[in-house]
Design a protein around this nucleic acid. Structure first.
Length: 347
DNA sequence: CGTTTTTGACCCGCGC
DNA sequence: GCGCGGGTCAAAAACG
């Protein structure tokens, strides 16, 4: 699971060279039942340039309980990546029990089969039914087998502090539904990746407790490159990850938060099962902080910013993960664990 | 005119 | 069995 919180307001816009961005991404072993992450983690606080202090993780999912742990069980938090990629200061805050490798965890690519295998209620012939087929069957043949549960892709939830609900993450989404959320004045929107072969979906809803927080839940893995690849992303990405086949992303524009969570290189998922196929997480994440300065369309053609190019010159794991300026500022902490993204990519 | 959004209806799972 | 809530469909409307 990834959780991200960013601070952005109109007066304190996120810029690549500023450190007003607060990020906390991590993975955990998902409890079997509903849970509130705020009760699991005691994250440190950090200060923005404006001096405001807030917890990196305040009320993660306290109002958004995850009720489908089976999908999250698919996440694989690999131990090797955590100590290398997560600042120890942050790691120490995360109970080790929460980041241990999960025996039941599996890869994304193998999630469908393993999920089915782990789900005794699933019948064997349901394992290969994908979303599209489900939809077709839904229209053609209403009756479903009783024990046939809808198979869900792994989900990744992000929390961002944003004024805009639908954050631009570089991918193109088509809204296909909207529902009122119980006990919340804000509706939940359903989006689907517009790429024909890509079945990634995402839900966007605003927290009822903190209306400034937008909860974005991604479901599935993109099987294609990002159609709108920010130059700044390319600037700091290794060649193998420049496409940023992603689990999910957030990117603000129009004065909202400006985040971009790079995703797996879609090829990496298929070919190279290595944790370190994903060191681009915070890189993209941070490199596109300036997206508020231009629209997503413009961003497609915008030249690399000086900051991103400077970031591109940074090498090494930590350098790759954290902008130099942010690294220098002890107040600005970036906590992340690629373990969530580190899933076996055997196919 | 193609694409996206809106929105009411429908399906499905689950709890009672 | 029924009601509720989450999720999805698809026609119509809106948009660029």
């Amino acid at each position: 699971m990834l959780l991200i919180k960013s601070m952005a307001d109109k007066e304190n816009k996120l810029k690549p060279n500023t450190s007003s961005l607060e990020i906390s991404t991590f993975s955990d072993q998902i409890p079997a039942n509903n849970y509130s992450l705020s009760s699991i983690f005691d994250m440190p606080t950090c200060e923005t340039e404006k001096g405001s202090s807030l917890s990196l993780i305040e009320t993660m999912f306290s109002s958004h309980p995850i009720t489908t742990p089976s999908t999250f069980d698919l996440l694989q938090p690999p131990p090797p990546a955590v100590p290398l990629l997560v600042p120890s200061q942050i790691v120490n805050k995360i109970p080790s029990s929460e980041i241990v490798n999960t025996p039941n965890s599996s890869s994304i690519s193998s999630s469908s089969t393993e999920a089915a295998a782990n789900d005794d209620q699933l019948q064997p012939n349901t394992q290969t039914v994908d979303d599209d087929d489900q939809h077709k069957n839904k229209k053609q043949l209403k009756p479903k087998k009783k024990n046939q549960k809808r198979q869900r892709e792994p989900r990744f939830a992000f929390m961002t502090k944003s004024e805009v609900d639908h954050l631009d993450d570089g991918f193109r989404w088509r809204k296909y539904g909207q529902k009122a959320v119980k006990n919340s004045p804000f509706p939940r929107s359903y989006y689907r990746c517009t790429t024909a072969t890509c079945g990634v979906k995402k839900r966007v809803e605003r927290s009822s407790e903190d209306t400034s927080i937008v909860v974005t839940t991604y479901e599935g893995i993109h099987t294609h490159p990002c159609p709108i690849t920010p130059r700044s992303c390319i600037g700091i990405l290794s060649e193998t990850t420049a496409y940023g086949g992603s689990i999910g992303g957030l990117g603000g524009n129009g004065g909202g938060s400006s985040l971009f969570i790079p995703q797996f290189h879609y090829q990496a998922l298929q070919q190279q099962p290595t944790y370190f196929q994903t060191p681009t997480l915070p890189m993209n994440f941070i490199s596109t902080c300036d997206s508020s300065l231009y629209s997503s369309q413009e961003r497609r053609f915008s030249p690399s910013t000086s900051s991103s190019s400077s970031l591109a010159r940074d090498h090494g794991l930590l350098q790759d993960m954290v902008p130099s300026q942010m690294r220098r500022d002890p107040k600005q902490e970036v906590a992340f664990s690629l373990s969530t993204l580190s899933m076996k990519s055997q196919s």
